[in-house]
Design a protein around this nucleic acid. Structure first.
Lengths: 341, 341
DNA sequence: CTGAAAGCGCTAACAC
DNA sequence: GTGTTAGCGCTTTCAG
């Protein structure tokens, strides 16, 4: 379009091939010629056309991320913002760029994948929130397209980076038990969502090991749904004195409901959530949360994906687990004393 | 790579050109031949290679967004999440995709633009938070690359979509005056940030017209910086009874500081912020906020950008203004009565 | 060490 | 209407 490699070649009085060699850092180019070419490139601010290049090299240096949430749900949930932020950060030191697409429906999602992958628009994709039997995975696998799952996936067949969410759930529950809460309820996500189910399992096992009764309430994702669910829980007959909430954003809803009931967060109702996002700091006294180390998670996933794309050997097993840890704040403090901050 | 147009042509027993015609919806192809081709495409799940296509058509169907914020600042700020979400939504009905890149430094940003544009990776870009003398604009202008500014820009020279932030500032201030607050302070962003300065101007003009004293405190962006600044303000000699805060996220910090001082949001200290993000619902009683109609803003900007890219004529003037409106909630209610919710 | 030439997969101008 | 052909701008053999 603008200035091409052949123009540079003409200017530097060399062949186009030589310009290409200089660009690719080929050793066997005489120094003075290299200099001539470099100068021409510099003065004309020439950059190779990635389209033409990728047609040859079969690489677009673009990786895809498809956001599933329906219609605008990306907005409030800090998870995706953090995810994208971390991906960009990981990608910054590489020649890769991020292509984000949204699919509101399940079928739309498959369509987006087709458009993204079969058209060779991207070199690989990062799958998020994938369910085990996900149709997308079948497709990707069938085309043997490079992908890495961020979340749970068959450890024998797919590359994935994940947390141990059962353990995460148990961390949260155990913490509340230790802090002396007696009646611990779990406010979970919709049924049959893997992350939610795993954390429920962790919660249940802790309850069982302490001879406590486990109570799980399901709610849709999001602030308002969680707030409404929490209202119902607090208005119910056997009001719990502590909640394990599926994520920080939902926990804000629970916090709101607790306050509406004239109860104090911490002393009256303990709360532990997950993700350890910036929202945790916005709750008075702080919201205790299980950190999933999303930064490390994403960094690892990107690293793997690039390896898969570039056909490099992958060390270790297909599934990689990132450790999670509890970050205790005021929301799980029963005593009135001012604590650490 | 996988299956090509020529393969389909062979299978359907036609020339490659015919396949291309069918794909592009060319009318003058016999129905039976079209059917044969369509079947072949369908059964082999053929999709044209966008790289080769874009090499010919000079279109990548990719639009770029470069996020400026330094290192991980994307995370907590709902603005970018909302922005990206809205962009994806606007793009969903078009053949365009979004390519997001991050630049932590100013020089890095220019480099990212070079990589994005001169390499023809994207068809156009959306500029956010641009300062008037931005080096990026000069570059883009010089290469006459398609771009639309989301924010303030020289209305005579560049396409832009913006709010009237002076007006937005005055809306917030006027509202607090009407609600009966006496001592209204503005907690603004860093100095020399256009959005902040404009809102300050609006605030000042309202204060002046009511014969009030205007007091502006600058703070860095983000929850914690705002909280700390608010702490200082509240601990100071002449404690204000109302705050205009630059954005919702910063307002959360102010809310926290107010509560730490044992004061009530609304009755004791009124707060109005900007953006009307989901965070507003997470404050007890609700956070009053000036909505910038980011959805409309982005939709309009994308529409323009696509027009510029496709060389279509732009109706109206280069600068388009999106109306903003105040959304009143509990944080600016002095009376104790339960209000609308 | 450098140049000439082939071709990545597609579109579009030009023939028939 | 359909086929043939010439590139889009680049990388990469293959000669020399």
């Amino acid at each position: 379009m603008r200035i091409r490699q052949s123009d540079i070649a003409k200017i530097a009085n060399v062949s186009q091939a030589t310009v290409s060699r200089v660009l690719s850092g080929d050793e066997r180019v005489e120094d003075d010629i290299r200099q001539r070419v470099l100068v021409a490139i510099e003065t004309h601010n020439y950059k190779p056309d990635v389209r033409a290049r990728s047609l040859r090299t079969l690489q677009t240096h673009l990786i895809g991320l498809v956001v599933k949430r329906p219609h605008g749900a990306l907005q409030g949930d800090p998870f995706y913002a953090q995810l994208i932020s971390e991906i960009l950060e990981s990608l910054a030191s590489t020649p890769y760029h991020l292509c984000v697409d949204m699919a509101t429906t399940d079928s739309g999602q498959v369509a987006v994948y087709d458009e993204l992958l079969r058209t060779r628009r991207v070199d690989g994709v990062l799958l998020v929130e994938s369910e085990a039997d996900d149709e997308r995975i079948v497709r990707l696998q069938h085309d043997d397209f490079p992908f890495v799952v961020l979340g749970k996936a068959d450890p024998a067949r797919f590359y994935s980076v994940d947390n141990d969410n059962v353990f995460a759930g148990s961390l949260a529950a155990e913490h509340l038990v230790e802090r002396g809460y007696a009646n611990i309820l779990m406010l979970a996500g919709p049924e049959a969502v893997t992350v939610s189910d795993d954390r429920i399992a962790g919660y249940r096992s802790v309850m069982a090991s302490h001879g406590r009764r486990a109570v799980v309430v399901h709610s849709e994702f999001g602030y308002e749904a969680a707030r409404d669910a929490a209202r119902g829980i607090l208005a119910g007959p056997s009001r719990p004195d502590a909640l394990v909430v599926l994520d920080d954003f939902m926990a804000l809803g629970a916090v709101q409901a607790v306050r509406e009931h004239g109860l104090r967060i911490g002393p009256d109702v303990g709360i532990v959530a997950f993700n350890d996002s910036v929202l945790c700091g916005t709750v008075e006294g702080g919201l205790s949360s299980v950190s999933l180390n999303i930064g490390a998670l994403v960094a690892r996933a990107i690293k793997r994906l690039l390896k898969v794309i570039e056909g490099k050997p992958i060390e270790s097993s297909r599934r990689v687990e990132i450790a999670c840890e509890l970050v205790a704040r005021g929301s799980s403090r029963r005593a009135e004393e001012t604590g650490d901050r």
